[in-house]
Design a protein around this nucleic acid. Structure first.
Length: 566
RNA sequence: CGGGGCGUGGCGCAGUCUGGUAGCGCACUUGACUGGGGGUCAAGUGGUCACAGGUUCAAAUCCUGUCGUCCCGACCA
């Protein structure tokens, strides 16, 4: 491709409404163009990258035995009523009415459609297991679309659905998908982690998320420094430490803490570290009106874990100020477990505190020097908190680090939720009708593009991994219009590289070198060859990797082999 | 959903408070010079000032409403 025939719509200035670097760079590089909130046109440069991701995904899905289909973006409401999701889905579901007053939605996902396709077309266990995928635009009417294509309303997604007669078959395909996902993300050249994930309301046994690591990621991931263990922070279990409980040294004492409500204020006021202060949260209970949750002051409640406790109301909800007043007789800031008459659940770490501070169940007062067993009975220990960096890895190997990640893939075992609701069945070997069990596997294709930039950029622009780059090699001739030699050499190189199968971008614009360099850097072409008279006089061209600090001269005659060598 | 900001040429912004013929930088066009990291000079193109209504002799500017867009928040005691 020649720049003279390619829309290179680069900007020097950063558009004001782009918050994160991938969004800024995608706009500046001219990859995307905004049409409305969360809705973007993929321009030629951006589309090339999107297609690279798609190609990798498609190849690996095919290799893993999945069959490609393409389902409608517009889906009839009836189908969603059958699955029960027409009512369940909120305003995120974009609903439409056609001229005949029939109701539709723009598909945010395709479980219903695929299950319908399967129930109409699959009859026999001989056709199973079957795994279908598509790469398609979805629409979710997010409350607050942001970060460009990272969290867009319209986005390109690969979704796959597998169908099985039994759980073993599902587990087989699930494992195959897990491996296919690893192959896919390996090939992108991105640094990622596969993590254990919350199966959420959908249920099912196994669930893994794939996260591209980047500081701007919206999710926190905990992973061991000494094993393969990795989990969403929401999911990571905290190990019960076997450390001995320190013996009490202080007497229990009531102290005034006027106006100190937040745990940090109390600790600061008393001149104590956060981990000496016990945090008491009152939440709505399942059977009693409120339940107290105890955490060490420096730990945070993991609501996902709390939500799963049978003692608590589901969904998880904090008690109101009035409920706190009724149960503890004080404002939320002064609640403590001593002589509290509601059910108490304590995080394991909270049970190992000694001589700690807690609320006194009286406004503006706290207790110091509190100790388990002596001053109050040992509470029931549960896993309540979010893990923090430095915690022991739950598999017993190494300690946990925490990194930010961008969720780009999610696989999970769906079970019979949709096949049951829609009546997707097949005959088994005995000729009996059996409800199919399903797996579901997604990849946010357009999000991968943004995630790649979040992970690979510098102050000059994008630094594409070779596998995702819109072009692999940039040819930058210096003074092509004045020098016959430069022009001929460049044209020959261009033809040779194209013939060798490279995606090459020849910058044949009538621009000054600085402009060409800046543009090639901004759009992130991983390799660059500069052809100038100066170098050619020595028989050299200048080679530079986008990620490298400096360039080096290489003999023109060796260019082809040097590039092939990487 | 709640709160806040912003809508002025393709992009970034000034002008709004204090009403009086719409400006700057970048980009774009043409020419000259220049020619290895966003160059210089000159001449140009391009704007119903988001939209609707109102006040006024006069509205980008004041008032009312609508729409768009961005940010923050949705309760860790």
């Amino acid at each position: 491709m020649r720049t003279s025939q390619f829309l290179l719509s680069t900007l020097k200035e950063t558009p004001a409404d782009a918050e994160i670097v991938s969004h800024q760079l995608m706009l500046r590089a001219g990859m995307i163009s905004k049409l409305a909130a969360g809705i973007y046109t993929w321009m030629p440069l951006g589309l090339r990258v999107l297609r690279k991701v798609e190609k990798i995904v498609r190849e690996e899905m095919d290799a893993a035995g999945a069959q490609e289909v393409l389902m409608p973006a517009i889906q009839p409401a009836e189908l969603w009523e059958e699955s029960g999701r027409w009512a369940k889905f909120g305003p995120e579901l974009l609903r439409l009415t056609d001229r005949h007053d029939r109701t539709f939605c723009f598909g945010p996902t395709h479980e219903e459609v695929i299950t319908d396709m399967v129930r109409r077309n699959l009859r026999s266990y001989r056709q199973l297991p079957a795994n279908f995928y598509q790469i398609q635009m979805k629409f979710r009417d997010e409350t607050r679309p942001r970060f460009g294509v990272m969290r867009a309303r319209e986005f390109l997604m690969k979704d796959a659905y597998s169908f099985h007669l039994d759980a073993d078959s599902l587990a087989d395909t699930y494992e195959r998908m897990r491996q296919a996902y690893c192959a896919i993300f390996d090939r992108t050249g991105l640094t990622y982690r596969m993590v254990e994930a919350d199966t959420g309301s959908i249920g099912g046994r196994a669930s893994h998320e794939f996260h591209v690591l980047a500081d701007s990621g919206e999710d926190a991931i905990a992973f061991s420094n000494d094993s393969d263990y990795a989990a969403n922070v929401e999911m990571a279990t905290s190990l019960i430490s076997d450390a001995q409980l320190d013996a009490p040294e202080q007497e229990i004492q009531r102290v005034a803490t006027p106006g100190k409500r937040a745990i940090g204020e109390v600790a600061e006021f008393l001149g104590l570290p956060l981990d000496k202060v016990l945090k008491t949260l009152l939440v709505k209970g399942a059977e009693s009106p409120v339940v107290a949750l105890l955490l060490r002051g420096d730990h945070e409640l993991n609501e996902i874990k709390a939500d799963k406790l049978p003692e608590l109301a589901s969904p998880f909800e904090m008690a109101t100020e009035e409920e706190v007043r009724v149960a503890a007789g004080c404002t939320p800031g002064s609640v403590g477990p001593v002589e509290l008459t509601v059910p108490i659940l304590a995080d394991h770490a909270a049970l190992q505190m000694a001589d700690f501070v807690c609320g006194a169940n009286s406004d503006d007062e706290h207790l110091t020097g509190v100790n388990w067993q002596r001053d109050l009975p040992l509470a029931t220990g549960v896993d309540l908190r979010k893990v923090v960096a430095g915690d022991a890895s739950p598999d017993g190997k190494g300690i946990l680090n925490i990194a930010r990640g961008i969720e780009v893939g999610h696989i999970f075992q769906l079970g019979e939720t949709y096949s049951q609701a829609l009546g997707a069945t097949c005959l088994d070997e005995q000729g009996k009708d059996r409800v199919l069990t399903m797996g579901c596997y997604g990849i946010g294709v357009s999000r991968v593009v943004a995630a790649a930039i979040e992970q690979h950029h510098d102050d000059r622009g994008i630094v594409w991994p070779q596998a995702l780059a819109p072009f692999e090699i940039a040819l930058v001739p210096i003074n092509m219009r004045r020098s016959e030699l430069v022009r001929e050499t460049t044209e020959k190189l261009y033809a040779d590289l194209m013939a060798a199968g490279y995606d090459v971008l020849l910058d044949d614009r009538k621009e000054r070198p600085g402009v060409m360099f800046a543009d090639m850097d901004l759009i992130g072409i991983p390799q660059r060859l500069v052809i100038g008279e100066r170098g050619l006089a020595e028989g050299n061209v200048e080679y530079k990797q986008r990620s490298a600090e400096s360039s080096k001269d290489i003999p023109l005659v060796e260019v082809m082999e040097r590039l092939t060598a990487g």
